[in-house]
């Protein structure tokens, strides 16, 4: 699964531009399941199991990543942009990006610290001061390789480091995509339905129609969530911890989860010697927010791989958490299909 994660993170796919991710996933699953693409671009997959499912279970992971979109080109040839998804300017200043179909190299510039007033040395420039420099001499030269509307994504490679850690852009949520691909390629006890969803980062647009189209009884959202197990953060604020398995949610900003399902996840984990942990801070939101309100209502569970520095070019996970999450998700899918 590590190779899948690596390849998936290397692809570019900001919200609304998930095409290359979808093509990659189709290539990986086409020999193992039936699939279709809905009008918004969600990749919907049906995988036959050994037995028919008593309840229809949908597994969801989103294909899109946070990034930026070119809004205009200045007369000096700099690119103005809007953020796509929730990105703090702090984590993109002075970073390298790729722009548009030609994957043009660019950098997000910043006024040199030497020229900044003493009392502004810690102040992050406002979003409308940000720009991308592709080295163009002027507007005309810039427009010869990029256009307003072009996607911008982080230039960030895949690195394995430390004791089992991985750094890449877009781990949110290509890790979830990798878990689902791995499931589809494996033998399943029960029939299962999958959605590789679009546009999660701009407000779970894709999952809403995917859930309508699949019409499940149960859903499992496979995600990443903030791990704040970093220097200087107190235990109670850590949300979840790298190395302690998938984080199971009881509540976030978009969903109050079914408590029975939450409790069942920990029972099943214990029965199967799977490592998992609760997500201990009510924060964030994900596709579950759209799915649980679909049609007449859907019972949902979210399992997230803990991820440090989420929504930055430098997302960090511990790989063992992805493996433990995979085991838990597969077990829970069987449980829901048969209960």
């Amino acid at each position: 699964m590590l190779e899948l994660i690596k390849e998936l993170c290397t692809l570019s796919g900001i919200s609304g531009r998930e095409d290359s991710v979808r093509d990659y996933i189709i290539d990986k699953i086409k020999d193992f399941a039936e699939y279709s693409v809905d009008p918004l671009g969600n990749l919907l997959v049906f995988k036959k199991g050994k037995k028919p499912a008593k309840n229809k279970v949908m597994l969801d992971a989103h294909m899109d990543e946070v990034g930026m979109i070119v809004t205009a080109v200045t007369s000096e040839g700099f690119l103005k942009f809007a953020k796509v998804g929730g990105i703090n300017s702090k984590v993109i200043l002075g970073r390298s990006v790729k722009v548009g179909k030609k994957a043009v190299n660019g950098v997000i510039g910043i006024k040199p610290i030497h020229l900044v007033d003493k009392d502004k040395e810690d102040t992050i420039p406002s979003a409308d001061e940000l720009y991308i420099d592709i080295g163009a001499a002027d507007k005309e030269e810039a427009l010869s390789v990029v256009s307003p509307g072009d996607a911008v994504w982080f230039n960030s490679d895949f690195v394995e480091f430390g004791n089992g850690f991985v750094k890449a852009k877009a781990l949110d949520d290509r890790v979830g995509c990798a878990v689902l691909i791995e499931m589809i390629r494996s033998e399943l006890e029960y029939d299962a339905w999958f959605s590789f969803s679009v546009q999660e980062e701009i407000g779970t647009r894709g999952a809403q129609t995917a859930a309508f189209n699949i019409a499940p009884d149960y859903a499992i959202v496979v995600e990443t969530t903030t791990a704040a197990d970093i220097s200087g953060v107190k235990d109670e604020n850590r949300v979840c911890i790298c190395g302690k398995g998938g984080a199971v949610s009881f509540m976030d900003r978009s969903t109050i989860y079914n408590k029975a399902l939450f409790d069942r996840a920990f029972e099943i984990a214990k029965e199967n010697n799977i490592v998992c942990q609760p997500k201990t801070v009510v924060a964030g939101g994900n596709d579950a927010g759209a799915i649980h309100k679909s049609r007449g209502g859907v019972k949902v569970l979210t399992v997230s791989v803990p991820c440090r520095y989420l929504h930055s070019p430098t997302c960090v996970i511990k790989y063992s958490d992805a493996e433990e999450s995979f085991k838990l998700i597969k077990a829970m899918a069987e449980e829901f299909a048969s209960c």
Binding site: G86, N88, S89, K90, V91, E121, D122, T123, I124, S126, F161, K167, T226, A228, I230, S231, G232, V233, N237, V239, V281, A283, G284, R308, Y309, L310, S312, T314, V316
Partner: peptide, 19 residues
């Protein structure tokens, strides 16, 4: 190595735009 970045849920609003 990666320099740490404070997650949004821990940052006070006035800290969001401060290094």
């Amino acid at each position: 190595g990666a320099v740490i970045s404070t997650p949004p849920h821990l940052a006070k609003p006035e800290e969001a735009s401060k290094a």
